[in-house]
Amino acid sequence: MSDGLKAVFLAEQRMLLRLLTARLRDADAAQDVLQDLWLKLESLPSGPVADPAAYLFRMANNLAFDRRRSEQRRSARDGAWVDVQSDASDFPTAEEALLSRETLGRLQAALDGLPPRTAAIFRAYRFEGTPRKDIAVAEGISVSAVEKHLHRAYKTVQTFVAENGVDIA
């Protein structure tokens, strides 16, 4: 940095700080940006500057703008991060998880009590997403027969829900 630019910086330091404080609306941030400006000036190659005061004020204004834009991006990014984070209340307690696993085990036992073909059709349709028509072809039965097997399985689930007061939604 040239001695002339350094002298102008030192002479205008108070006005630069006032500009930065007005732009950033934060005295501490303004001090930081003023320090950044000084460091930036230290790293510049020396050379003639036509209007050193205007040059310094433009640099200060640009640094303040960059700081505000960076803060806005950080704030938006942090806000987006908070929005996608789950609240602790979204997770079940250990007791709720244990009760759910026990209930699921009892429901599995009820489904295991179905005839093998009915259980296989129910699993293919509900868990694997196989269309009824494809199940009918694979099992060598009509679509109507597949629907009857599904009805029997649904009846078992419905009975289990009614007997155990379970919410399966």
Rank of each mutant, 00 (worst) to 15 (best):
G165W: 01
Y125Q: 03
L111I: 09
F122V: 01
L114M: 05
E71N: 04
L24R: 07
A169I: 11
G165C: 03
V84R: 14
Q13F: 07
D112C: 03
G4Q: 15
T156Q: 01
N62R: 09
K155D: 13
F127L: 11
K6D: 13
P45D: 03
S46Y: 04
L19Q: 10
D36R: 02
P131Q: 06
M1L: 14
Q13W: 03
D3E: 04
D112G: 06
K148D: 12
M1N: 08
F127M: 14
D66Q: 00
V84A: 12
M1V: 13
A145H: 10
W81S: 13
N164S: 04
D167G: 06
A110H: 01
L98C: 08
V137S: 13
T118K: 02
G165I: 00
G4F: 13
R73M: 13
L107C: 09
I168P: 03
A109K: 11
H151S: 15
E12L: 04
G79Q: 06
D36M: 00
L17N: 00
V82K: 07
R106S: 01
K40R: 06
S2A: 05
L114T: 02
S75N: 07
E96I: 06
S89E: 12
Q85L: 11
R58L: 05
M15I: 08
Q31E: 14
M1S: 15
G113V: 05
P48Q: 04
R132A: 15
W38S: 07
A29W: 11
F160M: 08
N61G: 11
Q31V: 08
D51F: 07
P92D: 08
G129T: 05
D112P: 05
S46H: 01
R68S: 11
Q35D: 08
S100T: 12
A80N: 15
V143P: 15
T103P: 05
S142V: 09
R68G: 03
V8R: 10
D26G: 13
R23T: 14
T103D: 05
